[in-house]
Amino acid sequence: MKPDMLMSTGVPSKQQIDGVTPPESRRKQGPFVVIECFQEIPCDPCYHSCRFGAIKPLESLNDIPQVDWDRCTGCGICVAACPGLAIFVVDEAFSDTECLIAIPYEFVPLPEKGDPVYLLDREGRRVGQGVAHRVVPGRKPQGTPVVWVRAPNELSMEARHLLPAEKASKKAGQASDKAADQASDKASAGESLTGKGGMNCVSR
């Protein structure tokens, strides 16, 4: 049997994503949670983190979490609580052209409010640019920082990671501001400067 796409590539399929996206009517109403956790694993912090009862009780620890869309306020508490970093919040009602996406971000440097960021998709490809709209830093060592990025509307269900943009100018003047240093900083999110993913392959 051929393994499914998720288990052979680590990237969920379109059907899987569609399955965790609320109906059109709900999407227009305001922020909603997107739980990209598709495999039965022994785990339940998402359920316990939601104070609104929007994540339905798990009958068994290995159950896949299910959302009650009517109860989800899009508060984003669960984004920082999920050990799999598999939860995002999307607000498509933010403005006519832009949406908000809450992304867990455990890297340094943490962008500051207003900073431009590159947006990456589920394969680490650079798909656009956005702005850090709100940054909720986590308390070290336990916390997971969450960055709410402002992104073009059409990327609401695509952008799932970010990289600080225009770092070179921000960091100018620092002793360590060398090309190599930048390269390794980019690599700190595993991404190559070309935006093609963090590969460095030459065919032989």
Binding site: F107, V108, P141
Partner: peptide
């Protein structure tokens, strides 16, 4: 050697 020691880390402090 200046780059090999981790100075900033999202979770840990050295």
């Amino acid at each position: 050697s200046s780059d090999i020691r981790i100075k900033q880390h999202p979770i840990l402090d050295f």
